[in-house]
């Protein structure tokens, strides 16, 4: 499954692959969401998890009041998927695990 196919899942708002230092390698998002900003946040959070908890290949699902953000560290960088809070989180998690 290609990264950009995530955007076809209902209520997925953005997806991207960023390098460890937060630069976008590939990304696509709806007009309200800035992939560069999301990428920077994804890199920051994953690095924080790695450094604080000593986790390699960190993976996180973050729920906020409006959105759910998936983060997964892979060989090529960090994948992030942001979706609306009502999206099918389980489905996105399965797809993300399959892809990696």
């Amino acid at each position: 499954m290609k990264l950009k196919e995530f955007i076809k899942i209902p209520k997925v708002l953005g997806v991207g692959l960023v390098s460890d230092d937060g630069f976008i390698i590939e990304g696509q998002a709806t007009y309200e969401y800035d992939t560069e900003r999301l990428g920077a946040i994804a890199a920051r959070v994953v690095n924080r998890i790695k450094n604080s908890l000593g986790v390699e290949g960190a993976s996180a699902i973050i729920y906020t009041e409006d959105n759910v953000l998936f983060l997964k560290e892979v060989e090529a960088g960090i994948i992030f998927v942001i979706c609306h809070k009502d999206a099918n989180v389980g489905l996105i998690k399965i797809r993300l695990n399959k892809m990696t």
Binding site: V55, Y63, E65
Partner: peptide
């Protein structure tokens, strides 16, 4: 986009 409500770290 609102604050954190919960999270899962694997």
């Amino acid at each position: 986009r609102g604050g954190l409500t919960r999270c899962i770290i694997e």
